[in-house]
Structure formats: C-alpha cells, structure tokens
Design a protein around this nucleic acid. Structure first.
Length: 569
RNA sequence: GCAUCUAUAGCUCAGUAGGAUAGAGCGCUCCCCUCCUAAGGGAGAGGUCAUUGGUUCGAUUCCAAUUAGGUGCACCA
C-alpha cells in the first residue's frame, strides 16, 4: 500500500536539504481533521535552518511539488504545514488492498525468518489454575498471534511448573486423607482441595512440611510409585487445563516444563563453575551481582537443591540452541522483575550478551476487584479460572434470555461473548496497571468492552445480510465513501498495520484493543449519520463495501486478541 | 532503607518516539422509540494532567527532587 508519510517526506526533502527519513519521523497527525490528515511541524527545522518556523513553512510551501493524485492541498497554519490527503485515492488504496488480502489485511512480513519465543501461562501443576493465571495466558496468547501476524515465527511455550515441592504436599495429603475425598469422581477437584488444605495446615504443623519435602525427595530420587503418582497428577492437571485453554483459545507449541530440564541443570551449573561465576555464600552457591546493584542470584540452595533461577537459565540455554531466537519474552507478573533482571544478567555474564539483550520480561499488574483488593486474597470464594469463565458465559446467557430470547445458537453466542468480554477486559488497558475485575463493567454492552466490539461487528454483519450483499470491489465507486465520517474509517483501516507493528514493538496488546474501540466508534458514528441502505445503488454499494471492510478488520483485530466474533447476538 | 512500577474528569482509563483547543467509556443532567436491534441516538456539565524546580521556541509527555500508593529485595515459584 502507499506510504503517505514517505511521499510527504520525499516532497519536503526536495525543498530543503535534509534527510527524508528524518523528515518522515517528524510528520504527525493533527488533533483534528480540519487541520489536515498529516502535519509537518516546521519548528523542528528552525534551529538547523536558523529561520523562524512560519518562514520555513512559507518557503517549503512555495517550493514544494505535490502529486495531486495523492495530496489535495497543503496549507500553512502557524508553524505547521498541513497536508490534506486525496480522499478518493486513499479509499481506493485501502479498499482494494483489503479486497486482495481479506483477513490478511494489515499483516506484513517484517518478521520473516525470525523466531520469537514467548513463555506464557505457565501454571504450577497440582496447584489451582486460578484467576492470576488469566493475564499471562491472555497477554501471552495475544502477543503470540500479533507476532505471527507480522510474519514472525512465534513459539509459544507453556513452561509448566511440573516439578517441585507442591507434589510432595499433594502426595502426602493423598496418603493422610485418602478416605476423606472421593477421587474416582471429579478427581482434579479433590486434588486441589487436598493441596489447599495441606498448605493451610502446614502453617501450624511444620512437621508436615518436612513430610512433603521427604515425599518430594522420594520423587527426585526416582521412586517408582512416586513417579507414577507424579505422572498421574500431571496428566489429570493438564487435561483440566486444556478445558480452560480451549475456552480461551490458547495454544502452545511446547509444554516443556521444569521437569523436562531436570537432568539438564547439572551442565549449566558446571558451566557457571567453569566460567568462575559461582561463589559459596552461607552454604549456598550464588552468582554475585553486587557490582550491578542487585542481590545475588542463588543457583544451588544450602540444601543442595536447584532453584527457579537455575531452571530458568537452563531453559534459556535450551531455547537459544533450539530456536536461536530474535526475542525471548517472559509474560510473568510484575513481582518477578528482579528475578528476571538477575537471570538475564547472569546469562550475559556467561557470555551470551547477544541473547541476553534479546530477552525481555513482560510484566503485568494484578487482577483486583473494584475495591482494589487482590482477587482471592481474602474472600475465599471460587477463583478458579474455569469457574470464572463459566460464570461469565452463564451471565451472558441470562442477558440473552432476557433481551433476545429467540436468538438461535444461544450457547455458542454466550460462550463467545462471555469469554470475549473477559479477554477484552484483560487487554483493554496497559498491562502494567492492575486489572479491575467487575462483572458489571466488563459485561456491559455499551462502552469500551468486548461485547461492544462484538455488537458493532454483528451490526456490520446484519446490514450486509439484510441487503443480501455480496461484496465486490468492482462495483465500488470510491468517490461515494469520502464523507468525513467514512474517511475517518478509511484512515483507521489504513493504519491497521502500523497499529499491529506498534503493539509488537511495545509488547502491548492494548494498542490493538484501543484501536478496535476507535474503529467501532468511527463506524457507529458513520452508521448513525448516514443511511447505509439507500435508493442510490452506487452509494449503497460503496457504503456496504466499507461496512464489509470494517467487519473484516474488526474480526481480524479481535482474533489477534484471542476473541471470537459471534455472527449475531 | 534500596530497587522498581503507578499518579490525567466523580469512577475506569487513552493520549501517536516534546507541538496546535488534553480525549474516550461509565456515571450524572436534558432531549429523542415513523430508519437499518432502546443491547439505541442527540445535546450538556465535569480538568491547576500529584507537587516543585530544570532542559526547550514550546512539557501531560524528557530530567531531578518531593508526596502518595502498589510490588520486590537469599535459598518459594
């Protein structure tokens, strides 16, 4: 597609003796479309050219040659040069491109041949899969899809916490209270209850922790029966997660968890030793990071066991060898930033500077209720992610029954809307901020919510259906969709690629969510201002095609976030 | 104490690598069901961009300090 900024920068470059790439960076979008579609602030050149900004603007305007097929006019406004885009040209460019690429509209291949390894979700097996895991799963999943959209080869890794003392706890609990729980039915539920009960009781009886440690030691030593139980626990947990992952539309390329690295850690420890990085301290083996103003990174505990830093380093080395990654992203909570800073620094000290620079921790805030309290911290009610998703679906079903009881496929619509609402709520603000989980807000059909985006999409759909319209770019007279409201849409569609690129650059899915809100609002504006269905066939066809275009981009964008669009609701 | 994140309308948040009059949504006030879903539309009120300095032609944006809140700081992940 045409690059208008480049065109403008080119034209300006010919009048002043400056680099066009630099000029292109200066170009901005005016706050208000009366002031044009693109603006060049001449203040930036004042110093270099040693002239007053309005004078520069005047000189450029006099000398500049613009291609009238692309730019309608140039105007001076204070120190700004305002450029007005040829509306028909842009409508044609955008809609033709959309016709060519359809669902792929906006995708690019800037990432071709590059691997992006994304570590996300990563629940601890045998522990509850709760609301706290939502964010990592959803943010990571969105980044996975966004990078793919940009041509990267995304590798999604669910780094399962499938090794550790929690197994000792569950196994001990199983032995102690076997008869109190019904394991034949709803097994996973019983296991979770045992884990929760054990964690509670061990606070008062420290000897239970020792029992758990010994049970885990048995597992580490390769006890046959313990290993059997571990396998069984891992299996039923995974099967349980799959249900949630299916609801959330989350997919992974690898489920290699901590257990997978169990026998590979010795090598890394040895490597650290050889490179002279390990130091004895208080009975533990550490990498001293004092000169980098960080606490030491523990590699081997005083009990002689490995720790998560050891496992992260091991898996990192493995990922370097396997994927030779361009980026390695860790979608993990805010509270672990020091840990990752340490691990990446140790990796650098080991001689992998190149890869250490490519590692990035993608932190995010907590999920809190509307009073600002962490969900599940005090109120002990259900915080299992699966339950929350099902609750959302149930709530949407109730709304549908109330408002639109004759709707076909109610169950499917309820699923798409309910889950979509939760996903969108999670991704609609900057990830670093705490996410407020408030049923009334996130399920609202008005406002900046998932259901609103879906509702607008359904509107585009229903208009097309009503008109019995088969989209065909050949019938479109582009001069019929250049009203202000339509042109706002065209400009938004035009920027879709840039939005995706920016989302990846900042590793921030909310860039996409905000865009979807803007696009929905722009369409809603247009829809309310003009009758899409009119007697004039040329106008109607053009408007219908634009409607069709909006629908496609809304759907593509929503899918990048992991949402599904219902056909009606 | 040190590190780090956050602070914009009553509430929840956007704010495009410093730029033109700081934008949405919710809530609130008023108006509108003879148009395509009232799960709607229109209009309006609502701001010292936490404070103070600095850099600059220009700061909500960058820097420093201060204040308030969150999180993390040795064998849990």
């Amino acid at each position: 597609m045409i690059n208008i900024k480049e065109e403008i920068a080119n034209s300006i470059a010919k009048t002043v003796n400056l680099d066009e790439k630099e000029l292109a960076n200066y170009i901005e979008i005016p706050p208000n479309s009366d002031l044009g579609d693109y603006a060049f602030p001449c203040f930036k050149l004042a110093k270099e050219l040693k002239k007053a900004p309005p004078m520069i603007a005047n000189e450029i305007k006099e000398k500049i040659v613009i291609d009238e097929n692309i730019l309608e006019k140039v105007e001076i406004q204070g120190g700004y040069l305002n450029f007005y885009v040829n509306k028909q040209m842009l409508a044609k460019e955008v809609l033709t491109e959309l016709d060519n690429k359809k669902e792929k509209f906006g995708s690019v291949n800037i990432g071709e041949g590059k691997n992006v390894v994304i570590d996300y979700s990563s629940p601890n097996i045998a522990k509850p899969f709760h609301i706290g895991h939502l964010r990592s799963t959803v943010i990571g999943g969105a980044l996975y899809k966004i990078y793919k959209f940009l041509g990267y080869n995304s590798v999604g890794i669910n780094y399962l916490g499938d090794w550790g003392i929690q197994f000792g706890k569950v196994m001990t609990g199983l032995e102690l209270w076997k008869d109190e729980y019904d394991l034949s039915n709803n097994t996973i539920d019983a296991v979770l209850k045992i884990y929760v009960r054990f964690s509670k009781e061990e606070k008062e009886k420290p000897e239970m922790t020792d029992m758990a440690r010994q049970a885990f030691k048995k597992l580490e030593d390769g006890d046959k029966q313990a290993l059997e139980t571990w396998k069984w626990l891992r299996e039923i947990s995974l099967a349980n997660y799959e249900k949630t992952y299916k609801l959330l539309n989350a997919k992974f390329d690898s489920y290699n968890g901590e257990a997978y690295y169990n026998d590979k850690m010795d090598k890394v420890v040895e490597e650290l030793e050889q490179k002279g990085l390990l130091k004895d301290s208080q009975g533990a083996k550490i990498v001293d990071l004092e000169e980098f103003d960080m606490p030491p990174c523990i590699i081997i505990t005083s009990a002689g066991t490995t720790i998560y830093a050891t496992r992260d380093l091991t898996s990192l080395e493995d990922r370097i060898n396997k994927y030779d990654f361009e980026k390695a992203l860790y979608v993990v909570g805010n509270e672990q930033q020091l840990h990752f800073k340490q691990v990446f620094k140790v990796l650098e000290l080991m001689g992998y500077e190149k890869y250490a620079k490519r590692c990035e921790h993608i932190p995010f805030g907590l999920v809190v209720d509307k009073d600002g309290e962490k969900i599940g911290s005090r109120k002990g009610n259900s915080v299992l992610l699966e339950d929350i998703l099902n609750e959302a679906i149930e709530k949407v079903k109730n709304i549908i029954n109330e408002k639109n009881p004759d709707l076909p496929d109610k169950d499917e619509v309820a699923r798409k809307v309910g889950v979509g609402a939760i996903i969108f709520n999670d991704l609609s603000n900057s990830r670093i901020k705490d996410e407020i989980f408030d049923w009334d807000m996130l399920l609202n059909f008005q406002g900046e919510t998932g259901p609103y985006i879906q509702y607008i999409y359904v509107r585009t759909n229903s208009v097309l259906t009503k008109a019995g319209y088969t989209p065909s770019i050949k019938d479109v007279d582009f001069s019929k969709v250049t009203e202000k409201e339509a042109f706002d849409i065209i400009k938004l569609l035009y920027s879709f690629s840039d939005v995706a690129i920016q989302a990846a650059a900042k590793n921030e899915p909310s860039v996409i969510s905000r865009y979807l809100i803007d696009l929905s609002q722009a369409f809603s504006n247009y829809y309310n201002q003009y009758h899409i269905l009119t007697d004039d066939k040329a106008i109607q066809d053009a408007r219908l095609y634009l409607t069709y275009a909006v629908g496609i981009v809304l759907k593509t964008g929503a899918e990048l976030l992991g949402m599904e669009m219902p056909d009606r609701m």
